[in-house]
Amino acid sequence: MAHAQTSHAPSDKYYVPHSSPWPIVGSVSLFTTVVGVALWLNHVNAGPWVFALGLAMVVFMFVRWFGDVIRESESRLYNEAVDRSFRMGMMWFIFSEVMFFAAFFGALFYARQFSIPWLGGEGVKVFTNLLLWKDYENAWPSNGPADVGGDFEVIPAFGLPAINTAILLLSGVTITIAHHALKAGNRKVLNIFLAATFLLGFLFIVLQAEEYMHAYHELNLTLGSGVYGSTFFMLTGFHGFHVTVGAIMLTVIWFRCLKGHFTPTHHFAFEGVAWYWHFVDVVWLILFVFVYWL
């Protein structure tokens, strides 16, 4: 390979890692995890244990893989081009997450706009109602013409959900302040406001858990409460899961900040997490409007 005539500064070179065990460890871990769940669902006793083992392996893989990446980043192996790849990768990952939520929002809108009105006999579907589900009226919330799961009450938007909205919006503000502080080199403000952000995140999760308890124990609103319960818990549940992941990510970069990682110009991980956090924030706003409020 004699095609290089000039000596290039290292930062001109795109960093390509030599080899890495973590992808294969990750594949085995994911496989173990899903096999565990499959066994569990098929009532095999070992299922939960295999699942737990797989999950532990996934965590191990993430810690070690990200550990490698953080080490490389702190050794300044990543030039601007690599940084750009990470940014683009994160944006496209978030786009894929948006589409995942879109599937569930699609289900919600379909149920509200089509399936429930049709079961109620709207439009050309009058016989569906007349012959199959007589006396069922188009209404929302609904657990369907068979009253699946029994009578239930819904959670009013302007109680706990509104407080949760305020919490997430506030956390969006605190992370922005932290980001500005990072860029200004003000590490103290950075550390404080980043801590505030993940604490708000965990507070949100606690309140959400509280709300779930309330729904299950007092309102008889469960995952099995017809299509309302299905869409309500799947949307808020997946959102809650994403908030949890986001809050863990925030905690990780907080520890990195405490260790003195990141510079005013070199902090992709911080921005990636911040974007992700704004993404879960926006999903919540849409959720708040269409699941709780309207």
Binding site: S115, G144, V148, G226, V227, S230
Partner: peptide, 11 residues
């Protein structure tokens, strides 16, 4: 869940 079951309001 009853996403795909008419009895529960799904389809």
């Amino acid at each position: 869940t009853t996403f795909f079951e008419a009895a529960g309001g799904g389809d």
